[in-house]
């Protein structure tokens, strides 16, 4: 299973989770099969005048991931992810390593809606 995390930088599993989704500097895709990580930059959306969440979500859909782990997710990003069949999980952890632990232990809560309004 491939899971994407919103991260501040690329330090593999030692990366720090960014509190934003659409304007997160990058995404770290973690593969539960072989413990590997791939970093995807989100730089093009950091300066987007609007719709950063929509485009970030669309980019994630191209990474063949089954789940996204984030601190927060807005309504438009959530809609795009759900329509792509990607599950959204919420976490409070700041370390990717600890969030992976909780995810694989089934301790993270699956979101049933966005948890913040747009432009949060």
């Amino acid at each position: 299973m491939r899971v994407a995390f919103c991260v501040q930088n690329d330090k593999g599993v030692d990366s720090i989770i960014d509190s934003r989704f659409g304007r997160s500097p990058g995404f770290l895709v973690y593969d539960t099969q072989d413990d590997s990580t791939t970093y995807i930059t989100n730089a093009q959306n950091l300066s987007a005048p609007q719709g950063a969440g929509i485009q970030s979500a669309q980019n994630i859909t191209k990474q063949n991931v089954q789940a996204v782990v984030a601190h927060n997710c807005g309504p438009k990003a959530y809609q795009v992810l759900i329509q792509a069949g990607i599950e959204v999980y919420m976490t409070q952890e700041s370390s990717v390593k600890e969030a992976i632990q909780k995810f694989t232990n089934g301790e993270l809560e699956k979101a049933t809606s966005s948890n913040v309004p747009g432009h949060w």
């Binding site: 719709g51 950063a52 929509i54 485009q55 979500a57 859909t61 795009v80 329509q83 792509a84 069949g85």
Partner: peptide, 18 residues
């Protein structure tokens, strides 16, 4: 350029307010 359209699973999602 206003990021109003996402296409996932070959289906367009259009955000008219954008």
């Amino acid at each position: 350029r206003f990021n109003a359209i996402a296409v996932v699973k070959k289906n367009p999602i259009f955000f008219s307010d954008m």
